[in-house]
Amino acid sequence: MEGRWRRHWYSIGGGFVRKEGEEPQAESAVQLPFPIDTNNDLLHWCRKTGMSISEVVMENEAAWRPEAETRAGVLKIWETMRECIYRGCHAEGMLPGGLNVKRRAAALNHKLIAGRRYADFEGWVKAIREGGNGFKYTLDWVSCFALAVNEENASFGRVVTAPTNGAAGVIPAVLLYYVIFCDGFSDEKVLQYILTGSEIGSIFKKGATISAAMGGCQAEIGVSSAMAAAALTECVGGSQRQAMMAAEIAMEHHLGLTCDPIGGLVQIPCIERNTMGAIKAITASQLALQSTPDFAKVSLDAVISTMWNTAQDMNSKYKETSDGGLAVQIPLGLKEC
Rank of each mutant, 00 (worst) to 15 (best):
G88M: 01
T70Y: 08
Q312P: 03
F34S: 10
G14S: 00
G21M: 09
I77V: 15
L99K: 06
D187G: 06
E23Y: 09
Y118R: 05
G21K: 12
V125A: 11
L255W: 06
T233C: 15
Q218E: 05
S322D: 06
S186L: 01
A226K: 04
Y177G: 03
R158N: 14
S316P: 02
W9H: 12
A327V: 10
R82N: 08
L265G: 00
K76G: 11
N165Y: 05
T233K: 04
C144M: 07
A127S: 14
K189S: 13
K136S: 13
V303I: 14
D294P: 06
P261F: 03
A278N: 07
A231D: 04
W5T: 14
V74S: 07
L289G: 03
E252Y: 03
T164Q: 03
G216D: 00
F145Y: 10
L95D: 02
M58K: 13
N40V: 13
A63H: 05
K48P: 03
I85S: 05
S316Q: 13
G15I: 07
M245S: 10
T49D: 05
S291R: 04
M51N: 09
I203E: 01
L95M: 11
E336H: 12
C46P: 07
K317Y: 10
D323T: 08
S285M: 05
I85G: 04
Y86T: 08
W308G: 09
G13E: 04
F181Y: 09
V223N: 07
A63R: 09
S224R: 03
L176R: 00
K297P: 00
C89N: 11
A327M: 10
S285Y: 07
H254F: 15
E20A: 15
C337R: 11
E67Q: 13
K317C: 15
A302E: 15
T164P: 03
H254N: 13
G216I: 05
R117L: 12
V170S: 05
R71D: 00
N133K: 15
Q242W: 09
S28Y: 00
V298P: 05
K319G: 04
G73R: 12
G184T: 06
V30D: 07
V303H: 05
A29N: 11
A105R: 02
I194G: 05
K102N: 03
Y193I: 03
K205T: 13
E220Q: 10
N40R: 14
C46Y: 06
L112C: 04
D140M: 11
A119V: 14
E248I: 02
L175G: 01
S186Y: 00
T306E: 11
G237V: 08
G93Q: 10
I77T: 12
E151A: 03
T38A: 09
R82D: 07
I203Y: 00
G237E: 09
I113F: 07
P24H: 08
Y86P: 06
A230C: 01
A168W: 03
M244I: 14
G15F: 01
Q286V: 00
E92R: 14
E2R: 13
C217Q: 03
G222Q: 01
H44D: 10
F204T: 01
I36E: 10
G3N: 13
D187V: 08
G166D: 07
G14Y: 02
L334C: 10
T310N: 13
G333S: 08
I330G: 04
G3R: 13
S186C: 09
